[in-house]
Simulated assay, not measured.
Amino acid sequence: MPTPPITPLSVLDLSPVSSGQTPGEALRSTLALAVAAEAAGYSRYWLAEHHLNTGVAGSAPHILAGLVASATRTIRVGTAATLLGNYRPLQIAESIGTLAAVFPDRLDLGFGRSGPPKSSGEPAPRVVPPAGSAEAGPADRVIDGLLVPAPRPIFGAVLPRKFRLQGELLGRFPGDTDNFENDIQDIIGFFTGDYRTKHGEEVTATPALGQAPQFWIHGSTAGPSARLAGKLGLPFGANYHVAPAGVLDSVAEYRSHFKPSAALQEPYVIVSADVLVAPDERQAHRLARGYEHWVHGIRSGHGAIPYPSPEGALEVSLDAEAAELVKDRVDTRFVGDPHQVRDGLRTLQRAIGAQELLITTIAHDPADRENSYQLLAEAWGL
């Protein structure tokens, strides 16, 4: 009987900055990790986009993607995700087209829809009612062995001032996410040569023309991103590591709207997971310290802090309210020895029906992060 194919594993890297580390050191760690991930058999190396966070150096994914592609030879390189409202479509096409021309058949371009609300009084993006409130949905559930936690609020009731400032500095405006579908169509059109202005004029975007990357759409809810990925027949990136409460609904929405395309005949899902592997469970949980503090910085609206050391994390404990805010993230992180994490990820894959898994790992010491990916690759059979 033939051995079934091994489900691909890929990497999502935020270029985290640890306490005592400079952003330059964090970015060089990203390049070293990319080389190691390629050698270990990972399929893709994707870069996130975050701004105004002291604990994250990954704010320019298109530039960093070029550096990663230069440092590696075969692994696919891309973004997860390029936040469209932060750029004009032509800028994205030219930037990624430049990389695709130099590194043909290796570039992935993931689209993300994050942006400001239409008015200052509207809820922040992705806000869900706090667990236990009158408006809250179901409690924590276990579905096919997978923990699907109750929703938690993200950023509180209204988008924090820091994120509004980020939008202002990037030239965002309320409601600009309404252009999401048109922007994607324009970007694809620049690569295929089908772009036309509203007056019917042809535009050639050199060097994008004829150098199309693989296009993806990423989403956290059963909302516009999931539906658009299905409508356009593109692969979908489902977000378990940041928004685990909505992952099953988002994937179901994508599949229910899927239409075959030239790119894809059947739905294709990659699902993200936050992972930390060590040689034994006790060591893994020691290295995992500090994660809840780091997530709380994001969830509270202050931004990611430099990632604490295991010893430093013990000096300050989160209070009950803060711990509740990040409980879903902590509970859905896969931490343990290689076999424990492997089995947990198999459960995630089965419950989602995913064709691929996207692994993100954060640890204070870059060597521990690299070792985690190596141990997982070996246990998975890459």
Score class of each variant (00 low, 15 high):
residue 187 I to Y: 04
residue 149 P to Q: 08
residue 112 G to Y: 02
residue 377 A to C: 07
residue 132 G to E: 07
residue 268 Y to C: 04
residue 53 N to H: 15
residue 278 A to D: 03
residue 13 D to A: 08
residue 73 R to Q: 15
residue 117 P to L: 06
residue 98 T to P: 09
residue 146 L to P: 06
residue 115 G to L: 05
residue 206 T to S: 14
residue 103 F to K: 00
residue 299 R to N: 11
residue 77 V to Y: 03
residue 349 Q to F: 08
residue 219 G to N: 08
residue 69 A to H: 07
residue 214 Q to K: 13
residue 168 E to K: 11
residue 119 S to E: 11
residue 154 I to L: 15
residue 355 Q to W: 02
residue 263 A to I: 09
residue 242 V to R: 03
residue 285 H to M: 09
residue 77 V to F: 09
residue 134 A to S: 13
residue 360 T to D: 10
residue 47 L to F: 07
residue 147 L to C: 07
residue 289 R to I: 06
residue 89 P to N: 05
residue 72 T to W: 07
residue 126 R to D: 13
residue 294 W to Q: 01
residue 210 G to F: 03
residue 280 D to P: 01
residue 269 V to F: 02
residue 356 E to R: 06
residue 220 S to R: 01
residue 317 S to N: 12
residue 345 L to G: 01
residue 136 A to F: 09
residue 30 T to C: 11
residue 252 A to E: 14
residue 91 Q to I: 06
residue 183 D to C: 08
residue 89 P to K: 06
residue 361 T to H: 01
residue 150 A to C: 13
residue 261 S to I: 07
residue 327 K to A: 14
residue 55 G to S: 05
residue 253 E to P: 06
residue 261 S to N: 11
residue 341 V to T: 00
residue 245 A to P: 01
residue 12 L to I: 10
residue 375 L to Q: 00
residue 188 I to Q: 08
residue 232 L to M: 13
residue 251 V to G: 04
residue 340 Q to R: 14
residue 185 Q to R: 15
residue 8 P to Y: 06
residue 27 L to P: 02
residue 125 P to E: 11
residue 129 P to H: 02
residue 97 G to C: 01
residue 250 S to A: 15
residue 189 G to L: 01
residue 332 T to M: 06
residue 158 V to F: 13
residue 236 F to G: 00
residue 176 D to E: 15
residue 32 A to V: 08
residue 7 T to S: 09
residue 361 T to E: 00
residue 303 G to E: 09
residue 332 T to C: 12
residue 35 V to E: 14
residue 84 L to P: 02
residue 144 D to L: 08
residue 317 S to P: 01
residue 185 Q to E: 14
residue 184 I to G: 02
residue 209 L to R: 14
residue 64 L to H: 04
residue 182 N to T: 14
residue 375 L to P: 00
residue 339 H to E: 13
residue 175 G to N: 07
residue 61 P to D: 05
residue 314 L to N: 13
residue 5 P to G: 08
residue 283 Q to T: 15
residue 16 P to N: 12
residue 276 L to E: 00
residue 24 G to N: 11
residue 131 A to H: 05
